[in-house]
Design a protein around this nucleic acid. Sequence first.
DNA 1: TTGTACGCGTTATCAG
DNA 2: CTGATAACGCGTACAA
Lengths: 340, 340
Amino acid sequence: MARITINDIARISGYSKTTVSFAFNDPGRIGEATRAKILGIARDLGYIPDPVARNLSMKRHGTIGLLLPDDIPLAFDNSYMAQIVRGIGEVCERDGHSLTLIPPIRESLLEGVRSAAVDGIITIGLEPGPDTVEIIRHRHLPFVAIDGRPGGGFPVIGIDDRSAAEAIMSHVLDQGCTTIGLVAFADLAEVRSTSHVRVQRLEGYRNALGKRDHALLDDLVVTQAPASVAGGREAAQRLLSSSTRPDAIVAMCDVIALGVLAYAEEAGITVPQDVIVTGFDGIPESDIVRPRLTTISQPGYLKGRHAADLLMRLVAGVAVEDHVELPATLVVRTSSRRTR
Amino acid sequence: MARITINDIARISGYSKTTVSFAFNDPGRIGEATRAKILGIARDLGYIPDPVARNLSMKRHGTIGLLLPDDIPLAFDNSYMAQIVRGIGEVCERDGHSLTLIPPIRESLLEGVRSAAVDGIITIGLEPGPDTVEIIRHRHLPFVAIDGRPGGGFPVIGIDDRSAAEAIMSHVLDQGCTTIGLVAFADLAEVRSTSHVRVQRLEGYRNALGKRDHALLDDLVVTQAPASVAGGREAAQRLLSSSTRPDAIVAMCDVIALGVLAYAEEAGITVPQDVIVTGFDGIPESDIVRPRLTTISQPGYLKGRHAADLLMRLVAGVAVEDHVELPATLVVRTSSRRTR
DNA sequence: TTGTACGCGTTATCAG
DNA sequence: CTGATAACGCGTACAA
């Protein structure tokens, strides 16, 4: 049995498509009796309008797209992502939208952006390449970036990553550490060179080092790792088995720091006595793990809410501010406290 | 400047819509010169086919829907959900699909299911009400249920919840506990009465109790809580301040157990000495929290993968097995070990 | 090798 | 005031 279409209802009821459509969407424009008859037939036949055809003519899809920085398995291995999704989701539901996760196809965002049937797009954790932005523009899609670079002509939601990074590095140096192992997160090749938050955080870390003693810069070991516990574990193994073993490991996100802590425990290295560990993000696990993780607490949930809020306003055709900077705070916990 | 459509390209190039479409989708059917000319014009004008119109004529949307048991903020507060999404996402990407989260609209799943432009649907953590299933059927949407009741005419992915629950409760009783506080998770009103996994787990818990001493049944305190840390915290407060204070709290999912542990710590109640705590799911946090949480480790990631795998086969029109039962194991950790 | 016509629901525009 | 016609957007079976 084939799908029931509006044409079937029209044919059977003897009215035109227009009248049938009005029966559902604009009851005031047709007679009461006509409407009752049409609704009755539709109910009997179990008519459900094809959502796609509906979206096509209404030019509204009832869903917004979330452009992910990594493939889904990796992205959702980081609960910072879950926090952001929670915030976006709250606004989506309030406005009756669903939320479409658009992962990179073959390491590229282009394909997904070209073919996404969405009312607007939120990017997260990355600044899309110029060609990706161009496609979004060509498609006239409203567009908000979480953790992107301000000034690109689209709204950006973020924190002051540079100051936050400087704050946590300063704290580490206050503990008397001299050899810092820095673990950055890896991005898609597409955005690796320009990832705004990574650039900002690195600058912040360097600022803190520069204010103390420039020589320290030479001891800064930079490693890249996927943003996951496994990634952090491997990075820790590399750093902690090197000849210049660091006395502090500063991770650019909490999940990596969790991996570092896990490796340290397995290897019999005590935190914070043997090595200090810090993260960045303030995910729930940072307060659950032992030792508790010193980190920058940033409002992932609020970021998501604000981003979705701005996007909804853009979708509605309202102009919005182009930069929202939310507060982030240094949270000092056991993983970085030198007790001598 | 309005959108560039295929008609514009046709008009400007002097060819018909068909020819333009073939230039992109079936190059072999037109002349090489014709194709080059059309592609050149399209590139110059920045033509991007409207994804919705494309979906309409191709009857393929390139996305699958995930019907969530709770609103997004609550659902993603539970990292068991993240695990499942990771598994689904891996398969989606492999097949070039995106993933649409369909939350309940005003406590109801119906609206979302009616208007979802997706190739298929995965339900999770709930058994859709009969009317929801009916709509999915009417729409001829392929459909797979994670943690649903087998035998409904659609494939179900799950574990043996009854045996798993019996195993963990037996373990608790082995520790000598006599007053069990049981915390169940709350569902949407729509499915509350029939949630298959809850019914199965309750049965398993009761089986274990029944095998020891029927009198224990009277001491079983059942509480409901939202599946979140906050929910677990509140449930713990109620249970631990009651006159018949339990010597074990058995939670139906890990996030609730995490809340119980958090409350116990704040209230100065020691786990496992004062009260034993167990969870269910085996989320990553269960191994991070201290004391480490005794739980049932179930393969959320694999559940997602299997479900998406079956769904993709259904979308491709292939018949599939209608019940996949994955293994789950009892993992005994510190939170339930009585050391006397 | 290329063009015509159709499917799908909504709505601006027109006819009665 | 009520109801019908036609156009939108794309891919493709079918006709030429």
